[in-house]
Design a protein around this nucleic acid. Structure first.
Lengths: 142, 142
DNA sequence: ATACACTCCGTACAGTAGTACGGAGTCAAC
DNA sequence: GTTGACTCCGTACTACTGTACGGAGTGTAT
């Protein structure tokens, strides 16, 4: 399978495959003819694995670790589970943070008269510091 | 006020101020002595405004627009309100997406035996495509 | 044998938000 | 008048996930 075929099968671009290769996410493929990369079904699966994991919010670095686990004979299912749990906790933190932001935006929108000069715009006021802290600040930013 | 003093007052780094200046978020300051930047209280406020808006999830580009509105005589409170509403909608989309991810991770964690070889690891299975679609895929990725 | 599509490679670029560096100039104090 | 802290500038680098480019080589079909 050529690189463009593999890219099609996996649903990514050719350059993406070369990029993953550089990043060590997929192994160096054989080059039987004229230096052209030769891919098998397994590598396509591996690329799909990467895509799936990305959809779950894993970074390429983390996916690299998962892939390393996959070929590690000593690796345990619990290792993978722990990774997944850590990622879920991380996602939960992000959600909580975004919910705070949403609440702050809602508050600010609710008090806005919705028209008139900026001098009486409560949103601008809220962003212009002083009193703003209560409505806006929510501990450490991301 | 020197740049380092202004940075302290605003709670950012010196380089950050120069960066904002390059980005056009703050105006070119006066340089009365030896080419040193001279800041006033108003600029510090402006930098704080930027920080506040960042905490609400606005990007620097969007903040630049808000700041432009602020000095635009024709600007209306409704313009600001619309920006805030658009941002809230955006935040809501992100939350929804993350909640899908969390659900998928929860599902995958729940079915994991929690120990044993990777061959029986349901998380790895889920990531390894085929059947995975149902549990993992949630329409367009971010 | 030649056209055409495909592939090779390294490098640069995209956007986001800064941070770091190094050599030179400057300010205030002692 | 010299020390030490501060500032200047442009550039490069961080992290992330790719995308684009351009000139050269190669495989396949006609």
């Amino acid at each position: 399978m050529t690189i463009s075929r593999a890219a099609d099968e996996a649903g990514v671009g050719v350059e993406t495959i070369r990029f993953y290769e550089r990043k060590g996410l997929i192994e160096q493929p054989l080059r039987p003819s004229g230096g052209y990369r030769e891919y098998d079904r397994e590598t396509v699966e591996r690329i799909r694995f990467i895509q799936q994991a990305q959809e779950l919010g894993f970074t390429l670095r983390e996916i690299g670790e998962l892939l390393a686990l996959r070929t590690d004979r000593k690796a345990d299912c619990a290792d993978v589970r722990n990774q997944a749990i850590a990622k879920r906790d991380e996602v939960e933190c992000k959600i909580a943070r975004l919910e705070e932001i949403r609440a702050a935006l809602d508050a600010v929108i609710a008090t806005c008269p919705g028209g008139g000069s900026l001098n009486s715009c409560t949103i601008m006021e809220a962003l212009s510091d002083h009193r703003a802290k209560a409505a806006v600040t929510t501990e450490s930013p991301d």
